[in-house]
Design a protein around this nucleic acid. Structure first.
Lengths: 126, 126, 126, 126
DNA sequence: GTGGTCTAGACCACG
DNA sequence: GTGGTCTAGACCACT
């Protein structure tokens, strides 16, 4: 069963997207695996303190993307292969990196300065 | 007059916030200076292809933050000092870095790998 | 539920103010009572033929004045006590009377003539 | 020359309409007469503390209604006959009375109470 | 179903 | 030409 213990709501982006990205990042890291079960809508909504409809929307979109399978009466579960995993990883990384580089460059920060800032923000070299 | 030639609309974040961040990053970099004029609502809205009210909302929030002054019938302009500039720089950097580190860690990426990815995304060492 | 059957849009004054005044007059008359529900944004906007946001603006301003309470997902309702009712009554009457007297005096109409005109406009002595 | 000494800006209705109504009420009362001169746009705007464009808009609308004649290089002046005066009087009175009666009735005020309130607001029986 | 927010276009007063 | 306000429609999260 997927754990949402590290989930924390962030900025102003829609909650259902935050849930989707949380799951996708777990898929990329391998902490969420093929055939793994998703918490039920009711359980997850209680866990995250959001509305069941919001969870449902996230699950529905993941299902439309082919990453989740649902069968009435049974738990939903993850379905993913290596090709999809690689595609998602690139998507997520691209979004993260492009945003950061654009932002920092616009702020007049050099590449080396950016690297120092990131190393500092990262903390211990995990 | 502030140039918006490098502005490009992004993902799902609100347009008025994108305008605000674009201006703030210019303030931090020094490419936008104290007493510099902002494009009028009509001009900027036409340039960005958005509604004049969206631009106005961005300007109004910047005014409430004390970074813009507006007077009916006259152009709006920037007002900023070094202390504010420093404060904004820290805010923007914090937001950028925290988001990146959280996302990449969750994806199982190591610090050194992250640095390599950023250097590659940056391109030439500006 | 508050009825808006007698509502009719008037001259050039803002629609959201007309809605506010309509409700306030009902509060003064007692035809709208404490804890009574307001029609939802969608229902009232369809009824009056205006945009839902116009209704929302009226409700929001009444909420800021402490006369309405709203909670996401639930109906908005009236909250008023006798002191507020009295204060509103005086405000409304002052506005009505001052406007009328100023206008008629400027038109060269005498007090007695004004009274006759009002009695005639009123029709049956309700 | 028409005097605007008693003019005072009111509620939220457009300034150019307030100027128009001020003039129309003077016409009805006879304190503004046929062939009387209007102050120039510049003079009146300075007198009322509003923008010349606002005065111009009021004059233009009065001209379109046939109540003002302008000749380039000369002062604008009033042009009105008894029939027009009567028509305007009825229009203004209708608007005043209907608004008052509707408002007070909706507030649950009786006809006699209304008359007393008006007499009190009027003050001395001019 | 509910209210909250974001985006959009027209009108007003002002310099 | 400028900024301020009113009206409008779509989307989001919640009961």
């Amino acid at each position: 069963m997927i754990s949402f213990s590290e989930f924390e709501t962030e900025d102003g982006s829609p909650l259902y997207l935050q849930i989707i990205f949380y799951i996708k990042r777990g898929l990329v890291a391998g902490t969420i695996a093929h055939r793994e079960e998703l918490p039920s809508r009711r359980v997850l909504s209680a866990l995250l303190g959001v509305n069941p409809n919001t969870v449902q929307k996230a699950y529905r979109l993941l299902e439309e993307e082919g990453l989740v399978e649902s069968r009435t009466g049974a738990a939903s579960f993850i379905t993913i292969d290596e090709a999809q995993k690689q595609r998602i990883k690139e998507q997520l990384l691209d979004a993260d990196l492009q945003g950061l580089v654009t932002s920092m460059r616009r702020m007049g920060i050099s590449r080396d300065e950016a690297v120092r800032l990131i190393e500092k923000a990262w903390g211990e070299p995990t």
